[in-house]
Structures are given as structure tokens and as C-alpha cells.
């Protein structure tokens, strides 16, 4: 599966926020064998070199970066942030977030489509953080997006895949579009489920960063994503409502 023409080294995308230390972040990225890491832009106080040290750490990890527009609530903010990120991180990839509601951090699909159109026309390769809305997905593709990133559940909630039906419908409607479950995944089993549904990748941050042992959890996610991907390609069995004996009935002894 190609993401804007690029084959990723793994289907696990990892966020870089909220780790206990830069060392644990680096260990976690390595343990996850992340195919992409997400990064952001924030104000840096004069004299502080925290941002420069962070950038140096990320560059040394040698993993492609996907800058985000986290915290933006309007088209203008998101578009301006994307331009700033493109210059700083030297990539035209952008994880486009336009938040519409503060409690759930639900994407504003209307502003998202508009920002995606503006950025796509300006040469950006947009990874839109979206709800699982089918019509919204269609509009985003029409706006120029070649990847879609529906949420599993609200950011940082760890609730997993809240709307499996919706995610499955999205997969079925857009069989050839790279789809990534972004946000809400709390456990490796959630990530495996997303991959089993036919999703092409998952994006995890809080579930790894806030685990008691982030690097160990990163390993668990790596294995879960791999297991889910392999399972998907192995053509899973259909569910049934009634039991069907797996052990042969023929040749059974009569002992009653």
C-alpha cells in the first residue's frame, strides 16, 4: 500500500508526545519500528533550545515525519500552520487536524474539507484526521486527499473502535484508498482489530506514551499490527450464529 507514492517500512505510525523522557521516546520509536512519526510546532521561549534538541533526536531516528496541525480550530489557522510545518520539517506531508468541538476533539468536517482543498492545490499531501463519515470521506477525496484517517474514538480516550460498522463501511466504499485509524486506540487488540478490518495502518500516541513501560507497549503494538495485517491477508473465516463442531463427528465412539 502506497501513501502518496511512498511505501512505509511498517504500518504503525507513532506519535511523539507525552513520553516520560526523550530517551524513552526514542526507545519506543525503535521498539515500535514505526513507519512514520508525527510531530508538531509550538512556541519556543527565547533562549530555550528544547525544540532544536527534539528535532535533532527525531532526525537521528531516521523515520519519516508527519507534521500535524493539532490545536487548530479554523481553516486559516490550519493552513498557516501547515505552511510553517512544511518549511521547518522539509516535507509536504501534513496531518490535517481542524478541531470542531473541544470536549471530544471531534474534527470539523466542513472546515477540514475546505482546508484540505486549499492545501492540496498548494502541493501538500494531506492526511486528514476525520470522523468515519462516508460523505465527508468522499468530499475529502474530491478535495485532493489520497489518504483518509478516521478516528477510532476521541483522541487520548483509549476506547478503541467506537463505530466498527462505520469503519467497515468506509473500508468497503473505498477499497483502494489508504485508510488509517487515527486516535482512540488504547490497546494492541484495538490496533489488531483495525488491521483485521482491512485498515492499512494505525496511528498511536497516548496508548504507548502513557503506558507504564512505553517501549514494551510499543513492542506489543508492533506485534499486534503485524498480526492483524497477516490475519487480514489470510482471509478470515465468516462468523456464524450457531455452533459447528470442529472435531470430526464421524468415528465418534458410542459410550453412553
Amino acid at each position: 500500500m502506497l501513501f502518496y507514492g511512498s511505501e512505509l517500512s511498517s504500518r504503525l505510525m507513532l506519535g511523539t508526545a507525552q513520553y516520560p523522557s526523550p530517551e524513552i521516546l526514542a526507545d519506543s520509536v525503535r521498539a515500535a519500528r514505526a513507519g512514520v512519526v508525527t510531530v508538531s510546532l509550538r512556541r519556543e521561549s527565547v533562549g530555550s533550545r528544547a525544540g532544536q534538541a527534539f528535532w535533532s533526536l527525531i532526525r537521528d531516528l531516521g523515520v519519516p515525519v508527519l507534521p500535524n496541525t493539532a490545536g487548530c480550530h479554523t481553516v486559516k489557522e490550519a493552513v498557516t500552520t501547515a505552511h510553517m510545518a512544511r518549511e521547518v520539517f522539509e516535507t509536504d506531508w501534513i496531518k490535517l487536524e481542524v478541531i470542531g468541538e473541544s470536549d471530544t476533539l471531534q474534527p470539523d468536517m466542513f472546515a477540514l474539507v475546505e482546508a484540505a482543498r486549499i492545501l492540496s492545490e498548494d502541493g501538500f499531501k494531506v492526511f486528514p484526521y476525520m470522523t468515519e463519515d462516508l460523505v465527508g470521506a468522499e468530499r475529502l477525496l474530491r478535495a485532493g486527499c489520497q489518504v483518509l484517517m478516521p478516528w477510532g474514538a476521541p483522541i487520548g480516550s483509549g476506547k478503541g473502535l467506537n463505530n466498527v460498522f462505520g469503519l467497515r463501511a468506509l473500508r468497503a466504499h473505498f477499497p483502494d484508498v489508504p485508510l488509517v485509524v487515527d486516535a482512540g486506540i488504547g490497546l494492541p487488540s484495538h490496533a489488531a482489530q483495525a488491521m483485521e478490518l482491512g485498515y492499512d495502518a494505525v496511528l498511536i500516541n497516548t496508548a504507548v506514551a502513557q503506558a507504564g513501560d512505553p517501549a514494551r507497549m510499543a513492542t506489543a503494538f508492533r506485534l499486534a499490527v503485524e498480526a492483524g495485517l497477516i490475519a487480514r491477508t489470510a482471509d478470515p473465516m465468516e462468523q456464524r450464529d450457531m455452533a459447528v463442531p470442529s472435531t470430526p463427528v464421524l468415528g465418534r465412539a458410542v459410550l453412553a
Binding site: M84, N205, T206
Partner: peptide
């Protein structure tokens, strides 16, 4: 004026 630097992000 806004001056922004690389930072951790999700």
C-alpha cells in the same frame, strides 16, 4: 510575531 519550533506531537 509568532516564532514556532519543532515540538512533540500526536
Amino acid at each position: 510575531v509568532e516564532i514556532l519550533a519543532p515540538m512533540q506531537g500526536g
